[in-house]
Design a protein around this nucleic acid. Structure first.
Lengths: 340, 340
DNA sequence: CTGTTAGCGCTTTCAA
DNA sequence: TTGAAAGCGCTAACAG
């Protein structure tokens, strides 16, 4: 392996000169600089990332931390990553995807600080141990989603206004005369689930004082999105035929709903209105009929998260910036007046 | 920051004892080990990644290297990443997504060896400079796709048999009586494009000796997949109404083809047969009519690539394993006998 | 503008 | 089974 020393000797200069030719942290005369660079090229020398990071304490890598066993990306995650990556690219950072945290967490050989300058935390629950850990380690972080109130003065977040988004979706359906609405919500512990439920309930309660138990289901972590939509819809509509509208957590869940509706002989939108929280601009229009949805702009979420995090890293001061990314109600053909 | 020294002092042992408690590289008595671990926990100590990697020369990170400016993931990439990630998770590696290579390549401050134990190279062209670089640096690598022949004894690859896949697709269409087939191929320089073209040409040439110039288009790097499918189909079918079938590079391209067909008043599959090289199992069936396709099994590609790479890293010897991932012809409703 | 020196936090001989 | 000492390749403070 070629080291800085080799280059220095070969070029007849000192190590620190070579170092500064590469880091540009202090001025080096053009002649020396070019000579060093030429020798370096000839020896095929590349500075060692670790040796450098060991002293500078910076890596120019940001981490993307997913929770849970599966580490499987959805459409939402995909757009989000594309957003993160775009900003990483612009600002000269790399992205480290960290999935092993959970599995190897208690194996002593794997315990080590992550080689990142900061972390983006995905799919938070209210009291997320990952947040505590970053706080303790004093590691810059941005949470995508909402955190428990006690953290609100301590951590930066980027999120949609999920209470509002769910309220708007519900309002739209209520405005069409739907009274018995099935809400296929995300997994119960997730903050996004809690917020959307609040928005849903707010409208239902305000409109129908006599309903005491709205139809809400929660996704189980292990079940696939499509199965969740399919089975819960089948089950709920069979027991409660009065249900005339479904709000799905994601477009994959909606796909399951479509499948169940077909099986039950319910025509969308005439016999059943369907909406989803979704994003994917391409395939969405391939639903037949086209799926009305609440667009979450996840690519923007990702871009904003990366930007906030990098700002924080470079300003070298913890930020508690809280950004809300707008959602857009996109009405297509899957919702219709309640004819029941 | 808490260091190994702090733990050692606090626990009343030597640095190397602490080191070995964590690395398990030499036996430490149970009592000492537990005591050290307890002190470490109490001080909230985590071994420093860089200091460790500086001496061990391993990072337990593998790199995913994308070519080009945009760094935008498609469906294909998404499944592939999911495959890679699953294996990383199983085998205790992290994934570093490296997009800045290109942009910062000639900026001296960013020149440094990547902090990875090996790299997965995506979307290769025949003589890819990235391959040369890994070879020079002696860095384990796996290329997803085919490489130029001169590398075939030097680098491991994981790929579909794209010549065969394209031949099968073409054969299917030819079997249905299609003679004038438009092939919307990938960007010209990519190996996948070269291979598929060969398979396509092979069948066309063998069947129709009188055709001297089959209809082949190539995607431009900057144009979106949908636009490519849409505009090229519109253009080609207008000038060559005899075209009765289209082979699309990806499902997004096929989406553009569907759009163009609708605009031209061509009913799929009666007036136009369409096929694609694709993968996405969920949305694919939402094409109307359902899209016949050649399934690439990209999640398998990703899993195999990660496995091959990690094997290579752990065996500490360069591998030239070449794996071919099977493709599956999935016939749905978008292809039909040529009625023209 | 350049050189010298002293670490960064860890692993790894070597010795006990 | 443990400790002491010598680096890994680089940056940074100091000196010139």
């Amino acid at each position: 392996m070629v080291t800085m020393n080799d280059v220095a000797k070969q070029a007849g200069v000192s190590k620190s000169t070579v170092s500064n030719v590469f880091s540009k942290k202090r001025p080096i005369s053009k002649e020396v600089s070019e000579h060093v660079l030429q020798v370096a090229r000839q020896l095929n020398y590349k500075p060692n990332y670790f040796a450098r990071s060991l002293t500078t304490r910076e890596t120019r890598i940001i981490g993307l931390n997913m929770r849970g066993e599966k580490a499987k990306f959805s459409q939402f995650h995909l757009s989000l990553i594309n957003g993160v990556l775009r900003q990483c690219y612009e600002r000269g950072y790399r992205l480290l995807i960290n999935t092993l945290a959970e599995k190897y967490a208690n194996r002593v050989e794997f315990q080590s600080s992550d080689p990142v300058d900061g972390e983006i935390l995905l799919d938070p629950i209210e009291k997320d141990p990952r947040i505590e850990e970053c706080l303790e380690k004093n590691l810059p972080m941005v949470v995508i989603g909402r955190t428990a109130r006690e953290y609100s003065a301590k951590v930066a977040t980027v999120d949609n206004d999920n209470v509002e988004a769910a309220a708007l979706v519900t309002e739209h359906l209520v405005g069409l005369g739907h009274r018995h609405i099935l809400f296929l919500n995300a997994a119960k512990k997730r903050t996004v689930s809690i917020d959307r439920e609040a928005g849903f309930q707010k409208i239902i309660r305000a409109t129908y004082q006599d309903i005491d138990q709205p139809f809400i289901a929660y996704k189980a972590e292990e079940e696939t999105a499509i199965d969740y939509g399919y089975e819960r819809t089948l089950d709920m509509l069979r027991h409660n035929p009065a249900i005339s509208a479904v709000i799905a957590d994601t477009d994959k869940v909606a796909l399951g709903v479509y499948k169940a509706a077909a099986e039950l002989g319910r025509v969308i939108p005439d016999d059943l209105s369907v909406m989803a929280f979704s994003d994917e601009p391409v395939f969405l229009s391939e639903f037949s009929p086209a799926l009305s949805s609440m667009k979450l702009n996840s690519e923007l979420l990702g871009m904003e998260a990366a930007n906030t995090l990098i700002d924080q890293i470079e300003a070298d001061s913890p930020s508690v910036k809280r950004t809300t990314i707008a959602t857009d109600l996109i009405l297509r053909a899957s919702t219709e007046k309640n004819k029941r």
